[in-house]
């Protein structure tokens, strides 16, 4: 594969890598909710400072994080423009014919983009520092209590891990089929959007057919290896809750306290 996939695991041995995936999952979930409570410079500042610390601790190069922000740049831009021109309130900062920019508009534009950046950085931190297997195991483990209400936690986790396993394979295959159709004169680049979507049909159909074939093969191989669902299964990976993970609870408590004090 010739491209870095967004959300790819970056192996390492940092403190963040070593945390229990369940602790990380729970923390990230709670932290994302917390982000929505920040509403002024001080509270956003606290969260930005905290995220910067975690990024530093993860020992993952900054440019990998900035790469993860690239796909949402357009969204951020739209949000900024939206708030700049449409949110009213506070002092008028700029006025030119039909354009009026209010103080509140600038505030909102800054905060909304910060919020988006924080969310993406946090999610990226989780996927960069947690191997897919750990992630799915953590999820399965956390969802386990709900199995008694009929939630197929094991199947869900297995599905996720198989999907992660096959993403690069299918990505490569897409490239191959695209090239083959290009050699037969297919054009994926020109024309209006509708035509371009239509031009992908000769890629998508073979891709679906191959995905089904792979699924069939894989099911057979799994069955041959005695797979019969989650019952009586043991697990190679064991999850251990350590004192480091408890630390996350304390840090989170401080963050909540900080946000409560700082927000308006």
């Amino acid at each position: 594969m010739n491209q870095l996939v967004i959300g790819q695991y970056v192996p390492g041995r940092s403190l963040i890598h070593q945390l229990d995936p369940r602790a990380k999952l729970a923390f990230v979930f709670a932290y994302m909710i917390l982000v929505f409570f920040a509403n002024n410079i001080a509270s956003y500042g606290l969260l930005l400072f905290f995220s910067a610390c975690t990024i530093y601790l993860s020992q993952i190069p900054l440019r990998i994080f900035s790469a993860s922000l690239k796909p949402i740049l357009f969204l951020i831009l739209v949000m900024i423009l939206f708030h700049l021109f449409l949110t009213k309130g506070g002092q008028v900062l700029f006025h030119f014919s039909f354009l009026t920019i209010y103080e509140e508009g600038v505030r909102q534009a800054v905060f909304i983009s910060l919020r988006l950046i924080l969310l993406v950085l946090t999610a990226s931190l989780l996927t960069f520092t947690t191997s897919p297997m750990d992630l799915t195991d953590g999820l399965e483990n956390m969802l386990h209590p709900f199995t008694r209400f009929g939630l197929p936690a094991h199947e869900f986790a297995l599905m996720m891990s198989i999907a992660l396993r096959f993403i690069p394979t299918i990505w490569d295959e897409t490239e191959k089929i695209k090239k083959a159709q290009m050699a037969r004169g297919a054009d994926f680049e020109s024309g209006h959007i509708f035509r371009r979507v239509k031009s992908y049909i000769p890629v998508l159909i073979p891709l679906f057919i191959s995905a089904f074939r792979r699924a069939e093969d894989l099911a057979l191989a799994m069955e041959a290896r005695c797979y019969r669902g989650g019952i009586n299964r043991t697990k190679l990976r064991e999850l251990h809750f350590s004192t480091k993970d408890l630390g996350l609870v304390i840090i989170f408590a401080f963050l909540v306290l900080g946000i409560c004090l700082l927000r308006e």
Binding site: S131, M133, R165, T169, R213, R214, L218, L220, M222
Partner: peptide
């Protein structure tokens, strides 16, 4: 089985 890609389940 025949296809090396289609019988590996896990990511490591």
């Amino acid at each position: 089985f025949q296809n090396p890609d289609n019988q590996i389940v896990a990511t490591t």
